[in-house]
């Protein structure tokens, strides 16, 4: 079982060594990756997912428990200890949801457990999305929110890996406070690539990206924790207004008074 992931720094886009030369992530920790668009966040995700061995464009190396991972982890996706939830909000796979999940559960878990795993996955996904997913729907017919919910449920329940990597979770049409709470029930290392202040402040550390390089690692301090609490309350209040607007309700005008 994996206990830690290490990233050894490579080069920035202009060829200079990365300021953060080594990053260790332990199971149970939450890391937020922040930085403007084009700063190299997705490339970092790719390096992690593919267990970069110095041959990718960044020259980074990824170690598992302090050593280069066995080639099986790299060559066989279903043996990877990282479940990656990418920015995709639609599927290209033209299978019914049930058959897709059954195939995935068969290779990730076991043929005998597959049926039960599929039920759990659908139940988890349906806690995240307001529009329940039917196992008979085609993957390509799912809405953006349903697709994201299914991807998160698949990564958490079917893959059940020690590391979960979420790229841009806040873009999803899902309840992300609930997603975070549900995810934290599982003992895993989480990496969130995020523009969202609440998600970033909830992490144990923030990795700052710029010009293709890891430029700083900021451990969460007292100020972050204080802000996280306020940001959470703001998020919650805003989410209620959002839901009321989506439901077609009239508003009182005082819903965000506490922050005015």
């Amino acid at each position: 079982m994996l206990d830690s992931l290490t990233i050894l720094g490579g080069r920035s886009r202009t060829g200079e060594p990365e300021p953060v030369g080594r990053l260790d992530l332990r199971v149970g920790e939450v890391l937020a990756v922040v930085g403007p668009t084009g700063s190299g966040k997705t490339t970092l995700v790719n390096d992690l997912e593919l267990f970069a061995d110095g041959t990718t464009s960044t020259g980074r190396k990824v170690l598992v428990d302090g050593v280069p991972p066995p080639s099986r982890m790299r060559d066989e996706p279903s043996a990877s200890p990282i479940a990656l939830i990418t920015q995709h909000t639609s599927f290209l796979s033209d299978l019914p949801v049930g058959e897709f999940l059954l195939t995935h559960a068969r290779i990730r878990r076991s043929p005998t457990a597959a049926g039960r795993v599929v039920e759990e996955t659908l139940a988890f996904a349906n806690e995240l999305t307001g529009e329940p997913i039917d196992a008979r729907s085609r993957m390509t017919d799912l809405s953006g929110g349903q697709a994201r919910a299914l991807l998160i449920a698949d990564a958490t329940v079917v893959c059940d890996t020690p590391v979960v990597l979420l790229d841009e979770v806040e873009n999803a049409g899902i309840d992300r406070a609930r997603a975070l709470a549900l995810l934290r029930r599982h003992r895993k290392a989480f990496v969130f690539v995020t523009h969202d202040p609440h998600v970033a402040l909830l992490a144990d550390a923030r990795l700052v990206m710029k010009g293709g390089a890891m430029t700083a690692l900021l451990r969460a301090d007292e100020a972050d924790r204080r802000l996280a609490a306020v940001a959470g309350r703001m998020d919650f209040a805003l989410a209620r207004v959002r839901e009321a607007i989506r439901a077609g309700e009239r508003l009182a005008g005082s819903e965000l008074e506490a922050f005015a």
Binding site: P77, A83, I85, T103, R108, V158
Partner: peptide, 13 residues
């Protein structure tokens, strides 16, 4: 890079 990891794994299967 165009599909989710789940789809990659199922395509491989």
């Amino acid at each position: 890079d165009r599909v989710s990891q789940a789809e990659r794994e199922v395509f491989r299967a």
